[in-house]
Design a protein around this nucleic acid. Sequence first.
DNA 1: TCAAAAGTGTTCAGGGTACACCCATGA
DNA 2: TCATGGGTGTACCCTGAACACTTTTGA
Lengths: 253, 253
Amino acid sequence: MLTREELIEYSDEARKNYLEHISIDCVVFGFHEGQMKVLLLKNIGEEKWYLPGGFVLKREPIEMAANRILKERTGLDQIFLQQFHVFGDPDRSKVHNDMYDGMLPPEKNWFSGRFLTIGYYALVDFFEVTPQADRFSELCGWRDMDDMPKLELDHELIFKTALDTLRLQLNYQPIGYNLMPKEFTMPELQKLYETILDKKLDRRNFQRRILGFGILNRAEQPRKGGAHKAPYLYSFDLEGYKHALTEGFKGGW
Amino acid sequence: MLTREELIEYSDEARKNYLEHISIDCVVFGFHEGQMKVLLLKNIGEEKWYLPGGFVLKREPIEMAANRILKERTGLDQIFLQQFHVFGDPDRSKVHNDMYDGMLPPEKNWFSGRFLTIGYYALVDFFEVTPQADRFSELCGWRDMDDMPKLELDHELIFKTALDTLRLQLNYQPIGYNLMPKEFTMPELQKLYETILDKKLDRRNFQRRILGFGILNRAEQPRKGGAHKAPYLYSFDLEGYKHALTEGFKGGW
DNA sequence: TCAAAAGTGTTCAGGGTACACCCATGA
DNA sequence: TCATGGGTGTACCCTGAACACTTTTGA
């Protein structure tokens, strides 16, 4: 929580630089040790959790704004980002507003206005991210998707919508290039799908189907050293992958 | 095009009532005589065509704003409306701004600001619509989808994105309840699908597939009076339809 | 040598595709 | 009676789902 002076300073800065009434919130998905992770922020001195978010500069395309915001939180550039919904209930930021209400007259306080928020979700490589808190937060870090705290504002809804969109996307687009390390085994990739969908898939059918998409390259040498039979290593075939991204998997009609 | 006085009046009104930087643009699809139609507006005294659009009242949920805007243009309430994308390029409204540039200082002119626009598409019953021009337009009416004029601003892109989204939607949701009259024949419904997808479908396979979705009721009496064999009349089974809307058609994974 | 992980193959059923045939009706 | 539109049925193939067997490897 900011002091009155900090709030004044922040509000003036924000009003000068950012578009009013607009914010961006990001659901950042990562994958590590068979667990789906989401990047969350925790307020200073409070048990209040938020999705990473920010505002749009006055002359900035919204895609770039989302990129910039995520770069500040993760250190990553050129992230896979997908806009998925605008949340525009007039009361959606009510609680947030309340927090700083009374501290300043509304016309002075950046946070007291109404904000529409544009939801983006991102898929990132867990190992490449260096979570970085912002000035409102004492903590920015990964959280297991099946061990999420209660989120403030409508961030619970934003998260849920992002997850639904991601699941839908699995049906007609490839997923994984941004979530997996360069090389991985088939069971590891399967675990990713199982985690996103929250259900078990058949080993053999998964393999056949995924390979059928033509988006994977198999390395010559299998991984060694582990116990049991050495699994093959795969990497994404960027060309096939991008083609599948634009064309989609199944015909439908 | 407005006069200077009208622009001042409009700007003052707008600034008082609407959220700044935000607009809504709607792609309204209708279907008539085997043709897909789109609702367009033509500027007064110019060959400039636009999608119907508007702004969001300061305390209004965005869904309601889209509904209100469409009601003003079509006379219809409770339309099937689907948010599909936000267009946020800072230069997207440049041309539009230019039109009224110089007439007023920017801080006075509502149109000179940057606008993000939220795209909605609507599916409506052609016969129920009474197109109604707004104060900027001399004409509001249906236009055949394969005979579209050039659209101003980025409305071409917005339209195209809406159509793509609609086509994608055909794969996992039922379409037609909002586009067809109460009762219709199977060939008529097929024509709708063919028009949206812009390709021919097999008569028999279409019928089997559509019926398999369990969203249609067949009337006892076939339509009479036409030449040739009398076709059966169908209507949508609202319960099944809504179930299919929420559940979706195909499993995917 | 055995349990567990991983690679590969086979069978079966259901759905999509491509057909052909029959019926009704007005010109 | 025939061209046309419309309803119904069938054969085939492909794909996805379910399932079994073999190979590798460290304990």
